[in-house]
Amino acid sequence: MFKIAKKKMLAENICLMDVEAPRVARSARPGQFVIVRVDERGERVPLTICDYDNDRGTVTIVTQVVGASSARICALEEGEFIANFAGPLGRPSEFVYENIEELKNKRIMFIAGGLGTAPVYPQVKWLSEQGVKADVIVGAKSKNLLIMQDEMRAVADNLYIATDDGSEGFHGLVTQLFEQLVAQGKSYDVVVAIGPMIMMKFVCLTTAKYGIKTIVSLNSLMVDGTGMCGACRVTVGGKTYFTCVEGPEFDGHQVDFDEAMRRQAQYRTIESRKAKAEQEALAGHKCKVGLH
């Protein structure tokens, strides 16, 4: 059992939690994720690590309500427990192994979309702690869905905000903002894009035009998260990889995003049917089509 030391709602349906998991806190590196099972009936949900504190033995995760299990995670309060919390999983970001002096000479741009802000934060924080500067674009549909702005501002060299509806910062998509920055004379050696698959796909299409190396972090479906099931397989450069053990970060220009998006949606109909049945059961509706 893993105790929730702190909980904060970041937006409607998005919560941040510090979870007491000393072993994970000690081993975690930027780019890695955890598998969380909220209770006996819960799914094993892969969640990116948003921060970790070895001294306090806590790991920070950000969860958005998308299904039954994530809804129950977000319903937990401080002092309550998560049944299972395994990690850190996946390989740390490549730059963790790079020469710091060489990194300092690189211009790095992080592009975070929505919930992707959470996994971008520990990467920028780690770099900033090593004295490596990086720019960050954070994008969201609207102002009320922007998360972790203050934290990000504290570690980023320049923080740029884009919202689809223009309620804050640049009015438009992260890709448009990126192109505007490049047009203004900014240049980058590496782009790291983390967010919805569709955003990562379009960031890659954009950066390919400028020939900028681009790393993406894939949020594929997973069951065990340790290489056992293969649900997370993804085609990169024509070859199949397991996101959980060989990723989650890949060369974005090599990823087959159309396949990745299609595979990610595999269980969507079953899940939405289940969620609907659950809501109806809660509302006192009896299913007459024989689903239950």
């Binding site: 072993r23 994970v24 081993s27 890695q32 299972n84 919390f85 395994a86 990690g87 850190p88 999983l89």
Partner: peptide
């Protein structure tokens, strides 16, 4: 002890 991935957690 469950939830310990040897090679990653320890």
């Amino acid at each position: 002890e469950t939830d310990v991935v040897v090679g990653r957690t320890v």
